[in-house]
Design a protein around this nucleic acid. Sequence first.
DNA 1: TTGTACGCGTTATCAT
DNA 2: ATGATAACGCGTACAA
Lengths: 353, 353
Amino acid sequence: MPGVDKEEGDPGMAGKLEDVAAVSGVSRSTVSRVLNGGSVSEDTRQRVLAAMAQTGYRPNLAARTLASGRSGVVGVVIHVPPEVLFQDIFFSGLFHGISEGLAEREAGMMLWLANLSKEQTLERILGMRLFDGLLVTADTLDDPLVDGLVASDLPTVLIGHRHKDRSASYVDIHNERAAEQVVDHLISLGRTRIGHIAGRPGGTSAEERLTGYLRAMHRAGLSTDGLVHRGDYLTQSGVEGAGVLLEAGVDAIFAASDTMALGSLQELRRRGIRVPQDVAVAGFDDVVEASESDPPLTTMRQDTRLLGLEAAHTLFRLLNDPEALPQRVILPTELLIRQSTVGSMTRSPAAKR
Amino acid sequence: MPGVDKEEGDPGMAGKLEDVAAVSGVSRSTVSRVLNGGSVSEDTRQRVLAAMAQTGYRPNLAARTLASGRSGVVGVVIHVPPEVLFQDIFFSGLFHGISEGLAEREAGMMLWLANLSKEQTLERILGMRLFDGLLVTADTLDDPLVDGLVASDLPTVLIGHRHKDRSASYVDIHNERAAEQVVDHLISLGRTRIGHIAGRPGGTSAEERLTGYLRAMHRAGLSTDGLVHRGDYLTQSGVEGAGVLLEAGVDAIFAASDTMALGSLQELRRRGIRVPQDVAVAGFDDVVEASESDPPLTTMRQDTRLLGLEAAHTLFRLLNDPEALPQRVILPTELLIRQSTVGSMTRSPAAKR
DNA sequence: TTGTACGCGTTATCAT
DNA sequence: ATGATAACGCGTACAA
C-alpha cells in the first residue's frame, strides 16, 4: 500500500520522540523537556507542541518506564475469586473506592484477582517490575502473597492488616474496638447472655471482632462459655448460628457481618422469637439490606468505598515522598442503632448514646 | 549500609539478565534464549537456570515490551461508572468471564472504567502503547471511545457491537432474533396485544431487541401502535411501563430486561392483575431473581460470563494470528419458559417448543 | 549451540 | 535554553 499518509494524528502507528524532534527542528532532549516540564523557551515549546499534534505523537509507556523507573501504573491485588468481588459488598465497595482514587491521579490500574494461585500471583507481580506501587487486601492472617508483597521493595498499602504488618502501610478500621462498642451497646440494654457469630478462623477482621466481643464481655464480668459460634460471613451460617446460640439460651446475638445477622433474623422469625423483645440482634457492615430488614438491623457501619479511596491516597503519599514513614490510617465506624436491638416501642435511654 | 548481601532470591532489587549471564558464565543472549525457548544445550540451560534462581532474577516487563513489542497485558475497557459494574449483572458476569479467560493465558489485565471521560480514556489507552490487545464493551450506538479504539492498530475485540462494527471483531448474542423468539412465544400462546418495554434509545442491545419485537409483531400481522414504552433496563421503568401499557390494553408484556420485567410483575400484582391469566410477562437475561419471582419469569437466558470468556479467547486468536480475519462470534441464548407466561395450571402445547 | 552488536523509545547527565 | 550521549534491560538478526 504505497502512498500511505502517516501525518496529522493518524490513529495508527504513532511517531516517536525523534520524529517530533525532526519536524520541529529541535533535539529529542528538548521534546522530552516539553513533555516532562523542563525549561524550554515559550517559542520552541509551541513549535514542539505543534509538531506533536501534527505527527500524532504519543509517548511509549514501556520506553518511558524503562528509562525513568516510573510507570504511572499501580497493581491492585484482591485475591478473591472473581465472583466474590461482586457478591461481597465489602469488596465491591472497596474496589469502587480504589478505582476512583486512582483515577483522580490518572493512574493506571492493573487488577489481580484469585485466578492464579497466590504463589503464581506473587511471582508475576514482582516479576513484572512495572508498578509504581501496590494496593493489597489483607484479610487472612497467614498469607504468603501479602507477605511476599510487603517484603518486596515496592511501595505497598495494605487494606486491612495483620499484627505482623505493624511496619507496613495500611488503611483499616478498628475492628476490635468497633465490635466492643456493639457489645457494649447490647450490655447497656441489660442483655447478659450475648452470643457471637464469628467469621471464619484466620480472617483478620473476624478474629479482631471476636477479640472485641470477648473483651467487652469479660470487662462486664459476663460469661462467654458456649456463646461463640463460628460462621463464614454468609447468610446460611447466620441461620445456623442463631439455632446453636438459642440452645445456649442467649438474649442477644452479635454477628460479625450483616449477612449473618440477617440470616439470624430469618431463623428467629421462623421460630416465632420476637426481636428485640426476646433476643436482640446486631450486625456489622451496614449493607443496604440492613436498613430494610424486619426489624431494621442495628449494625456497625463501615464505609468500604472510603477505605479504597484512602488506600489510593495513602499510596500516592508514599510515592510522592520516598522517605515517608509507614502510613497507618484508621477509618471511623459508626454504630447505627435500629429496631433489632431497641424496638420501636421500647425506646431505651441507652439508645441515645 | 555496607556488606548488604544481594544474593539468593533477595526479594528486593532483582538482578538483570547480565547478572545471570555473569554468574553462569555465558552471554546475555544465551540467558535470553533459555528464557524464551531458544535452542541451548541442556548443560548450559541448567547452569543458567541455577544462576537465575541464585540471583533471584525476574525479567523486566518494560524492557521486554520495549524490545519485543509484546507485553502480555490486555486493556479491558468497560466504560460504565464503577458502581454499575457491580450493580448490573450483565457487566459483573461479563467481567467475571473476562477475568477468567485472561488468566488462562496468564495475561495481565488493565481495567478502564468510566472514571475519566471517553476522550481522556481513549487518549490514555492509545498513548500507553503497552497493550497487546483490547477488550471493549460496545453498548452504545454512538460511541467515540469505541470508534477510536477500533480505528487504532491494536487488536481489539468488542463485546456487543454496532452495525458499523461489521469489519471489527466482536462477540455478541443475536439480540434481534432472541427478542423475536420471545415475542413468537407470546404469540403462540394466543396473545395479540403484546406491549414492549424497551431499553434506553441508543443502546445497542435495546435497539436490536426492539427491532426483533417489531419484526415478530408485524410478521404476525399484529399492530404495535402505542405498545412500545421506553425504559432504561431498571426496575422502576418496568413499573411505569406496565402502567402505561395497561392503559393501552395489553394482554402480554415483553420487557427488554429482567429487572424491568420484575418491576412490571410488581405493578401488576399491586393492581390485582393476574399473571399470566390476564397479562403474560416475559423478560430478557435470566438474572437469578427471575426464577424466584412470583410467578417465575419466562425469559431469554444469556450467559454473560461465557461472553467474557469468549471475548478473551477471541482476542488470543487474533494475537496468535496477525493475519486473522475479523472474528465474529455469536453466542446462543435460550428461551426459558416459566409460569409468567404459561401458568402452572394452564400448561399449553406451545410450552413444549 | 553460542556470542556480538544493534535497536526498542525515553529519560537523565553532562556539556555548551 | 539546548544538544550530544549514555544509560534503561531485553530481544534478535547475524556471525562465528
